[in-house]
Nucleic acid binder design. Structure first.
Length: 940
RNA sequence: GCCGGGAUGGCGGAAUUGGUAGACGCACGGGACUCAAAAUCCCGCGAUGGCAACAUCAUGAGAGUUCGAUUCUCUCUCCCGGCACCA
């Protein structure tokens, strides 16, 4: 009998062995294929790790151990992202120097990680606050400075009065500081800014080739916020200057009936009277969020100024309103109330003219009538007649007999006819009614579809006209007409479901008054020579016509990169009275963060470094005269924007990474993490692309595949937090149930990407699994057990596939299924046992190693990924479901190789199936070997 | 409002080139062992009816395609995430 499983001593034993043998060190010059597996490195906070943090680390540990077993040279490193506000705030609060606090916290984190038995290559450990590391963070900044991508600006920035520092847009949660929840203010401060917008297009384009979760890619696209449009100039009547607007809809220019400027627009100050100035002052006291939350549009006219619509040459008024944002586009818009919701709302309030210039246009995208691509269109003037019953609230509808269509009365307009006359003719011809009163012409709607009988693409320009019958007076209808469609009387509700073409649905909404203003692309009207052009084409032509230019804008803003705080990388710039901002020579890097006793923020908008005279005062590298150092520091995101490169070559003193090593290891094959990811990923991709452009790295993207993890909540369903007192320390759990049980449990909780609550009761399940596997070593026999062949092969395949796909929960489940099968057989062959331990090893390495050693397996043998016999994946006899008329009526034991005749015979021999077959003829047999036998019967 | 993802037993969740829904685990119920308890082992466990054999219903709701739908199509409801007066 095996002794009791003592996880404490066994885990300690193997962790020490791995440490001594440097089992997980990656080599840089291996002939093996490489795999780079990376965790988002942690911020070593004072709170330490809770059980949620290691979830991703367990996954990468399993993945990398498994890849190593498959013969890969695996890089799986760990490091510390230790600069930034939280570490500094923690230090201030606990009256301890940030450097000391960081050291203590790292030591704590490392011990917590060690207990779980991870395979990190600690010889490559990095720390962003280490001068040997941040030397290269500063170096990257200097390269950007030299290329003009790091520049100084004094635009107003977000200022957190509590953290006493400027923040980037990305650091905000709405209009509050994401760190402390304080509402941010706008403050004008000299800032260093990185030109991330120069990379916006490339960051967008390259997303396509990445193996990332769709929602992360989508978040990146949202954040970049690219939009294509045109810049158009409007001349001002009493002045030589012009107003430039950005619009995505230059095709609506003929409908632009006024101009709106953002309150911050320079012309506002130039022309504004007292009333305008009052409005501007009020608008500026509000944050952008408050402006957005306003229920009603506000604004004020800029009296005495008119603009000229360059298309219509009309003079139009100019307004100031805070629904136009200074930070986007040109801070000025042309307002087209007929085709924009916001402009429409504003125009209604201020009684401004609304001019329709786009007519709705629909394309049929489904059969019948789906447009044939590439074929030309014929154009036809047409009518859609809505005809109301003489007494009831019902309308004439036509149900088409040859195609599955439902429509109103519809037809063409002959030469010389008005829409009304054409509609009356169709009414009489198609359904015979003669006593109709014309009520209204709603307008034109365009429908593009494939005309099936005429075999051509057609664009029908249909007037939607409305009639009410006065009586049921009716002429006979030709038989030919009756064969085409059937007439129905339907209510508006019924029509909503009945009408097939979008154009007819649009007409119905006009009738009911539920059609709001049309904001889609369409066909131009009231636009001079551009009438009947479609939006896409008109955009270019109208822009050209008025001398504007097509352009692209982004929501993404350049990255505000200065922080007025102590605990960050000093920005390596020297300000010289004669030479301006000068780069610190590369040989002088790193610019060390000075040791100080007081590092609290000054709050004046100046960094605490500004007070250290002996550090600030220096000489200009260019002219040698007296000069001052830049005193702002970099944001927390700086160090984490390139750390994955440093792991490839962590001790290099002459380059950020040796090109040979970079070429071997790049890119990161699997990157695993959660939280904060949109920003980190945008910044890292930006820096990476820059480094690619200057030849420092060889790939255009840093992370080929990204796996995002779901968090672990506390038992109470809330986030784990000191505040709620619901934090569970992994060390406590490991001490109780062992590292392997802990690892298996976190992987078995559910899909990796799901957020799930911690459930101690569920740990029992995996704990039992570990105990039962341990006991199995007594059941091992020399010869293989044939009854286990199939399940062993299936398990080896599935566990391997599942690890690759990050489906760890089903991998664990499959191993449990194998265990159940072995216990049922009461024994397992030695070779089969080895395979079991091989696939278990990445999940429960301590247990697997101990059992392998006790079984006498040789390391070089068992520490590789097992192969399986593909011919054994399918059992010789399977249970096959038998359906009769689509319902399962029984199962039969059958070889998957059996013929249809054999299958039907077996089914007929089954008593329950036979009952359902008796007295009936089999009319159809569908047999999918190994899957299903489906019989259709009809009673005789 | 727009975009992305989702909804399956008491619970976490399985099952997708459409093929026996509920794997695996937890919890729960019954039994064995024990003086007793824990641990362990065995049996049961979607709902309804039935002693049972079995039947009917069931994967958010409703339609459709199909021999067959958790899986595909359409409409709708709700939940999570991102963006949001972005012109």
């Amino acid at each position: 009998m095996a002794d009791q499983y003592d996880h404490r001593s066994i885990e300690k034993k193997w962790q020490e062995k791995w440490k001594e043998s440097k089992a997980f060190a990656a080599t840089d010059d291996s002939a093996k294929p490489k795999t780079y597996v990376l965790d988002m490195f942690p911020y070593p906070s004072g709170e330490g790790l809770h059980v949620g943090h290691p979830k991703g680390y367990i996954a990468t540990d399993i993945y990398s151990r498994h890849m190593r077993m498959r013969g890969h040279n695996v890089l799986h490193p760990m490091g510390w992202d230790a600069f930034g506000l939280p570490a500094e705030n923690y230090a201030i609060k606990n009256k301890i120097h940030p450097r000391v606090a960081v050291e203590q916290n790292i030591a704590n984190f490392k011990q917590q990680l060690a207990d779980i038995g991870f395979d990190y290559d600690w010889s490559r450990e990095i720390n962003t606050t280490d001068p040997a590391y941040y030397k290269w963070t500063q170096w990257i900044f200097l390269q950007m400075f030299k290329k003009g991508l790091a520049y100084q600006s004094s635009e107003p920035i977000n200022w957190c009065p509590s953290c006493m520092t400027g923040l980037a847009n990305e650091d905000l949660d709405g209009d509050v500081c994401e760190r402390c929840g304080t509402k941010v203010e706008k403050k004008r401060l000299p800032q260093w800014v990185l030109k991330i917008t120069a990379y916006a297009d490339r960051m967008l384009e390259d997303l396509g080739g990445l193996q990332w979760p769709e929602y992360i890619k989508e978040a990146q696209r949202n954040w970049i916020g690219r939009s294509e449009g045109a810049l158009l100039k409007f001349q001002i009547t009493n002045n030589k200057s012009q107003i430039e607007v950005f619009t995505t809809r230059p095709d609506t220019l003929f409908g632009a009936t006024y101009i709106v400027l953002a309150p911050e627009h320079p012309l506002v100050e130039e022309f504004g009277n007292a009333e305008v100035k009052k409005y501007v002052a009020k608008a500026q006291s509000k944050t952008e969020i408050e402006r957005g939350a306003a229920k009603e549009k506000t604004g004020v006219e800029l009296k005495g100024v008119k603009a000229i619509n360059p298309a219509t040459k009309e003079e139009i008024p100019v307004f100031v309103a805070d629904y136009v944002l200074w930070g986007y586009g040109t801070g000025a818009i042309m307002a087209v109330p007929a085709h924009d919701e916001r402009d429409y709302e504003f125009a209604n309030k201020f009684k401004l003219p609304i001019r329709q210039v786009i007519e709705p246009t629909y394309e049929q995208t489904t059969e019948p009538g789906k447009i044939k691509k590439g074929e030309p269109f014929d154009h036809r003037e047409a009518i859609i007649a809505i005809v109301k019953h003489w007494a009831e609230d019902k309308y004439i509808a036509l149900k088409w007999k040859k195609v599955a269509w439902g429509t109103f009365i519809t037809g063409g307009i002959e030469k010389g006819q008005t829409p009304e006359i054409a509609a009356r003719a169709e009414l009489e011809e198609e359904v015979g009614y003669t006593d109709a009163e014309f009520i209204k012409d709603f307008g034109i709607v365009h429908g593009k579809f494939y005309h099936v009988p005429k075999k051509t693409n057609r664009n029908a320009h249909a007037h939607v006209v409305y009639f009410e019958l006065r009586s049921d007076a009716r002429k006979p209808v030709a038989a030919e007409e009756e064969s085409i469609h059937e007439m129905l009387w339907l209510t508006a509700e019924e029509l909503k479901k009945f009408l097939t073409p979008d154009t007819h649905q649009h007409g119905l909404r006009w009738l009911l008054g539920t059609q709001s203003i049309y904001t889609g692309n369409g066909t131009l009207a009231n636009s001079g020579q551009f009438d009947r052009l479609e939006s896409e084409e008109a955009k270019k032509k109208i822009t050209e016509f008025v001398g504007g230019k097509m352009t692209t804008t982004y929501k993404l803003k350049d990255w505000v990169f200065s922080r007025q705080r102590y605990w960050g990388e000093p920005i390596p710039i020297i300000h010289c009275p004669t030479d301006g901002a000068v780069a610190v020579p590369e040989k002088d890097l790193p610019v060390l963060l000075p040791e100080v006793t007081s590092y609290e923020p000054s709050g004046t908008g100046e960094s605490p470094l500004a007070n250290i005279q002996e550090w600030v005062n220096t000489t200009c590298p260019t002219c040698g005269g007296p000069a001052k150092r830049e005193t702002n520091t970099m944001p927390q995101w700086a160090g984490s924007s390139w750390y994955y490169l440093r792991f490839m070559d962590p001790h290099n003193d002459t380059a950020l990474v040796d090109p040979k090593k970079e070429k071997y290891w790049a890119p990161v094959d699997v990157y695993v993490g959660g939280d904060h990811a949109v920003r980190h990923l945008i910044y890292a991709r930006f820096w990476h692309k820059f480094l690619y452009d200057i030849g420092a790295v060889s790939t255009t993207e840093p992370f080929a595949r990204l796996e995002f993890l779901g968090f672990i909540l506390a038992e109470d369903g809330r986030k784990m937090s000191k505040r709620y007192g619901n934090v569970i320390n992994p060390q406590t759990v490991v001490a109780q149930v062992g590292a392997d049980t802990f690892r298996l449990y976190e992987m078995f909780m559910g899909p990796f990407e799901n957020t799930t609550a911690w459930n101690p009761a569920s740990i029992n399940g995996v704990s039992r699994f570990v105990e039962r596997v341990w006991k199995l070593q007594d059941a091992v026999q020399e010869s293989a057990v044939p009854a286990l062949d199939t399940i062993v092969a299936q398990t080896v395949k599935k566990v391997g596939d599942d690890i690759e796909a990050f489906k760890f929960n089903t991998a664990v489940s499959q191993m449990m299924i194998l265990l159940n099968a072995v216990e049922k057989e009461k024994t397992i062959g030695k070779a089969q046992w080895m395979q079991f331990l091989q696939i278990l090893n990445p999940f429960a390495p301590h247990l697997a190693h101990e059992l392998a050693e006790r079984a006498g397996f040789v390391t070089t043998d068992w520490e590789q990924w097992p192969t399986y016999d593909a011919t054994k994946l399918t059992a010789a006899v399977l249970s096959l479901g038998v359906q009769v008329n689509g319902k399962l009526r029984g199962t039969v034991e059958l070889a998957p190789t059996a013929s249809q005749e054999e299958a039907v015979a077996a089914a007929q021999a089954n008593a329950v199936v036979a009952k359902w077959l008796s007295g009936a003829d089999i009319t159809k047999v569908v047999y999918v070997p190994g899957k299903i036998l489906s019989l259709s019967v009809k009673s005789a």
